[in-house]
């Protein structure tokens, strides 16, 4: 929007014009200040603990973690994200294809509403659901205990609606003329979807998967209910030895300890987590340089 000439206006209106405009900028700086402050504080307090040994060893010493690093957390987070993606990518794309194909029908409207509502389910509720479905040793359920499978699949539940929404949006962004052209050439629904719609939407769907991973990487609360934490490297995925480490859980446990040294380690781990999350975030933005509307949708 161009600037509007203000000559000849009363002093009050000119002053108000400048004041309100300036305030929007000030409030914006205030709003994004945590982004810069958090990176600064984490760097300032965690830098001293950050070195190669910190990345490449598991916690040892007393209190546990005062020596060694966060390798358990990095490996565990990776395991959890892989399990979560293995569930949510196929299911989310499947549901997204349905929403795209069925479009404006009433059933699709209901599915879309429920999918959007699932996006807003609080993480502790996902934790409860994951606990009773996967972890609990009584009643119906999988009886996997606090384990990587339980934690990973719970994170997968959280990812499903994210992948669904972005898949549908990416499919909608494929030009309708391509789809119509395919049908006009006599292709079936299946052929059109496989050869025209899905390849066209692939970049958008990839973005959606990365967005989902970005979201579950920072999730801590659901893991408190389903996986908790392990200071060693994963040896199995289910059962009493099935729990894995996790970066976010590790930060949580370290800041809860009354030890200055562990607080420094928590800040260093935050720095690593922030680095991964922000790098992923920037990567998504570079990928979708041309079509920003997808990246801005969720998160």
């Amino acid at each position: 929007m161009q600037s509007v000439p203000t000559e000849g206006l009363s002093t009050f209106r000119r002053f108000r014009n400048l004041l309100l405009g300036g305030l929007t900028g000030l409030f914006f700086l205030f709003a994004v200040s945590p982004l810069l402050l958090i990176v600064y504080v984490a760097w300032n307090q965690g830098r001293s603990a950050l070195n190669w040994k910190f990345i490449s060893t598991v916690p040892t010493g007393f209190p546990l973690g005062s020596e060694g690093g966060i390798l358990n957390g990095i490996v565990g987070s990776l395991v959890l994200v892989v399990i979560a993606s293995a569930l949510s990518v196929p299911v989310g794309i499947w549901a997204g294809l349905y929403l795209w194909q069925d479009g404006k029908s009433r059933q699709a409207g209901l599915v879309r509403l429920l999918s959007d509502l699932l996006l807003g389910v609080p993480s502790v509720v996902w934790g409860i659901v994951g606990f009773y479905v996967f972890s609990t040793s009584t009643g119906v359920g999988f009886h996997w205990g606090f384990s990587a499978m339980a934690g990973g699949l719970t994170l997968g539940f959280i990812m499903v609606p994210i992948v669904t929404r972005v898949t549908e949006q990416a499919l909608r962004d494929v030009p309708m003329s391509f789809i119509e052209g395919s049908y006009a050439l006599g292709a079936t629904q299946w052929q059109t979807m496989r050869s025209i719609a899905l390849p066209g939407a692939m970049a958008g769907i990839g973005t959606g998967i990365l967005l989902g991973i970005l979201n579950v990487l920072g999730q801590t609360a659901p893991l408190v209910f389903t996986n908790y934490y392990n200071t060693g490297l994963p040896s199995s995925l289910v059962g009493s030895q099935g729990a894995v480490g996790d970066l976010a859980m590790q930060i949580f446990i370290y800041v809860h300890e009354p030890s200055q040294l562990l607080h420094v380690k928590a800040m260093a781990a935050s720095l690593v987590l922030l680095g991964i999350v922000l790098a992923l975030d920037i990567g998504i933005r570079l990928m979708t340089w041309g079509s920003r509307k997808i990246a801005g949708r969720i998160g």
Binding site: A31, V32, I38, G218, T220, L274, D281, G299
Partner: peptide
């Protein structure tokens, strides 16, 4: 972009901060 990146910071990091 800055505003949307702020949304990506994990809750636990906000807590530690």
């Amino acid at each position: 972009t800055l505003m949307e990146m702020l949304a990506g910071i994990p809750s636990i990091v906000f807590g530690a901060f």
